[in-house]
Amino acid sequence: MTFPSLETRGLTIRFGGHIAVNNVSCSFRPGELTVIVGPNGAGKTTWFNLVSGQLTPSEGSILLRGEDITALAPSARAKRGIGRAFQLTNLFPGLSVFENVRLAVQAKRGTGPRLFRPAAAYREISEIARAHLETARLESVADLPAAALPHGDQRKLEVALLLAMEPEIFMFDEPTAGMSVDEAPVILELIDTIRKDSSKTVLLVEHKMDVVRALADRIIVLHNGEQVADGAPETVMASEIVREIYLGIPAGEAA
């Protein structure tokens, strides 16, 4: 059997006495989209931070294609294919939208050792960046500083940065939060496209039930930092414990 693309083993982090993520072990395969659900404060974002490296676990380990990456810096994990979009928009506010994306492309593609060549001379990098902007429907605001964008466009840019990283593992943390009904589909269609690529692993934190139903191949439920359910969407949504602690969906609807 081949290695899972991503695996966490006994992942735990404590903040003082508070255990935000408690002994979470799970593994993910390419071509699979896993939705992670759980009430606010369940530890979803914290678990993401552990996987992408912004936080260091108190216990446990993270494996990428079988290789232990627990000790690696976030930049090294990004280089190895872990890509992350943030729940709270986390851009380069004073740089243009185009520069934001170009930076992510440049990080992935590299520019070689020619220190003196003007950034604008790297045509391929600029073209790829522009393509990502088009995918995220941001061409028209390419020259504006990221800080000047309305919230919905900032969310799209957040996702465009993730696309530009060309990762193996895509991690979306509530990508459509606060977006209007007519903007959200752009993001969801994008995620759906990535999902259909059998070489990519997608992790998605999402609250909206219709989105979960439409996209999930699998659902993991976190509660108080613990993993309380993991399985096929129908099974998880139908389980007693999930309805009790989180979903609050009428029994009939889950079927």
């Binding site: 912004q54 930049s75 990004a78 986390n90 380069f92 520069e99 950034a119 940065l161 990283m165």
Partner: peptide, 24 residues
């Protein structure tokens, strides 16, 4: 003006995100 210059600005603007997209 070089690619390095933009990375430096990125670090100034948002160090954490610069690290997250792959810059040490």
């Amino acid at each position: 003006r070089s690619p390095l210059g933009t990375v430096l600005e990125a670090i100034r603007e948002n160090e954490m995100r610069a690290e997250a997209i792959g810059y040490r």
